[in-house]
């Protein structure tokens, strides 16, 4: 039979434990996210940080346990596995910059009344402008 250290041959066993464990852990992470969101009474900020950590963990489970991301097509070289992993990590970095950057720049998501504050600020600025106009 195959060398047990060879990741490509490990698939030949009867029960795909990697998948079963990945599935169970995914369900647990989903249930935990629900529990944190609706049952703990943590602050909104804490809840969001925890559920996003859970989301990234579950995504990593899918990529590693189900999609064989680190697996290489050639047995003797890790090149394709490393390329795949590096590519997805870079994509995740781009995604985080786009999402966190947009939310930060647009000023939403920090608190429910942020946009009201912004509206009143804009009104103040408009009034200042009007006053300056009158002075001229």
């Amino acid at each position: 039979m195959a060398n047990p250290q060879d990741s490509l041959s490990r698939e030949h066993g009867g029960i795909p434990w990697k998948h079963v464990i990945g599935y169970i852990l995914s369900i647990i992470l989903t249930a935990l996210a629900l529990w944190v969101t609706f049952e703990t009474g943590f602050s909104t900020r804490t809840i969001l940080i925890i559920i996003f950590i859970f989301a990234f963990l579950q995504a990593a489970l899918q990529l590693l346990m189900f999609m064989h991301m680190t697996e290489s097509s050639e047995k003797k070289s890790k090149l394709t596995g490393n390329t795949q992993t590096g590519n997805i990590l870079f994509a995740a970095f781009v995604a985080i910059v786009i999402v966190a950057g947009s939310v930060w720049v647009m000023g939403a998501g920090h608190g429910k009344h942020d946009h009201h504050k912004m509206d009143s600020k804009m009104e103040d600025m408009k009034m200042d402008g009007d006053m300056k106009m009158e002075h001229k």
């Binding site: 991301m69 390329t83 997805i88 994509a91 781009v94 786009i98 950057g101 947009s102 939403a108 998501g109």
Partner: peptide, 26 residues
């Protein structure tokens, strides 16, 4: 291997939609 590269692009595509949704949350 090429499909993994495509999936990286899909992550970027969906990230713009997530950014839009979260910015327009209220």
């Amino acid at each position: 291997l090429g499909f993994w590269v495509f999936l990286g692009a899909e992550i970027a595509l969906f990230s713009t939609l997530f950014a839009t949704y979260l910015v327009l949350m209220y």
